[in-house]
Nucleic acid binder design. Structure first.
Lengths: 231, 231
DNA sequence: CTGACTTTGTGCGTGTGTTCACAAAGGCTT
DNA sequence: AAGCCTTTGTGAACACACGCACAAAGTCAG
């Protein structure tokens, strides 16, 4: 379940506030979900609350952490040290949750050798060696779109089975490999969609800008598609 | 529909390759979805293909762009100029799709006044002025978690109705406001979950680490929850 | 002009996720 | 010890998204 991490975060917050016990209603509110859904998720996971009281915060934190595999450390490699890669390498939310960034790789000779967030950037040629020697299990792809699939293939070949992809391409992988995708411009486009809806749908009239002529083969000058994750 | 941007990207790629016509089968493969789903999405959107031939790429690009509101420009403000905010401000994928970053705001006096990606960082105090004067419609929150809700409230108050939130908190907003959330550590946690599954479930035995003692009120030392989007 | 072939658009069965609502279960007060 | 009150866990209705499979529609060759 993709909601477990959200519950966990809410529980951690409660823990900091010194709360020992929480009802499904309260926790659901903090996590922004329906309370019945939360209870079902939690029961589905095997944890038990106490009727009439609620859930013990410590206990739940432990259970969810274990379910998510956060009781062990995961070794992460970041491929592509552009703006995004650098931001990720310095992101505090990783280390604090059991994710250890063990390598930064890049193809650009100008950044190889630089130290970033306590790590030295290594050349992409060493990908296979690094993955195997340091037992990398999760890789983060933060390369330009053009390089992503090739990098992905090498990662898979080297034995990586979980990939977090920031490049704006659909990666193809064997189905033994799990890929999650984060696409910043897609998020904005979805927002733009809703924003436009509020302003009265796609210009109200479906025929605005009558596109009939185009179907008869007069191509409009379309802005070329610029592919770039980061500089 | 959240898949439209993906289709659009695939179509742009085809356009660059000089492809004029595409079948639902091909486009679906490029977008990584089922062809029936793609056809249903497209029909639901009102666009028409030609039976026996497929879809005209130019036409579809135009239709989807219009549906998503990409035929107009959207003004974006980025709040919080840490590592992540800087990476976002330099992200090429925004400008190329009609998103214009018009302001960078931060509370830290040390970064206010610096020029980043062609923009001067302004103080968060000017939030209301900036939003109104430059007609910001979409805001990106890249602040530390602690500041996010306060910033969000001010944005909503100033009239912003679409927010992209990178801070690891559940923002509460009136339901006239659309919020999308991108949480990097949650993505990794989901990967870790699947990774662990492959390795044989949560340590196989549900009783490993027997937590019974804890229910009798002996708190284990739990790692404090560190909140930090970026440095 | 006719017929064979290709591809769209969609009706329908299926499965999954969400929510309501309530009985069972435990604590707390008197 | 008994009953009231709170809260969990879950059965059942609902909604929705998915994908198959096919008829309708259009192209193209002869």
């Amino acid at each position: 379940m993709a909601r477990l991490p959200v519950y966990l975060r809410a529980l951690h917050n409660l823990q900091e506030l010194g709360v020992a016990t929480v009802s499904s209603e309260e926790l659901a509110a903090a996590a922004g979900v329906n309370s019945a859904k939360l209870r079902k998720d939690l029961s589905h996971l095997g944890s038990y609350g106490t009727r009439g009281v609620g859930y013990q915060v410590e206990y739940l934190v432990y259970q969810i952490s274990r379910e998510l595999g956060l009781t062990q450390d995961w070794v992460v490699a970041i491929i592509g040290v552009g703006n995004l890669g650098r931001a990720l390498s310095g992101y505090g939310g990783f280390a604090s949750r059991g994710f250890r960034v063990a390598a930064l790789l890049d193809a650009d000779a100008k950044v190889v050798g630089r130290r970033i967030s306590g790590l030295t950037v290594e050349h992409i040629d060493k990908l296979e060696t690094v993955v195997k020697d340091r037992e990398v299990s999760i890789a983060v792809i933060a390369t330009p779109a053009g390089a992503a699939q090739a990098v992905c293939d090498r990662l898979v070949e080297a034995g990586v089975t979980s990939i977090l992809n920031f490049a704006p391409v659909v990666l193809s992988v064997p189905d033994t490999v799990e890929v999650r995708k984060v696409d910043l411009s897609i998020e904005l486009q979805i927002l733009a969609f809703h924003e436009q809806r509020k302003a009265g749908g796609p210009m109200g009239d479906r025929l605005v800008g009558d596109y009939g002529a185009l179907r008869a083969d007069e191509s409009p000058e379309s802005a070329p598609y610029v592919e770039a994750v980061d500089a």
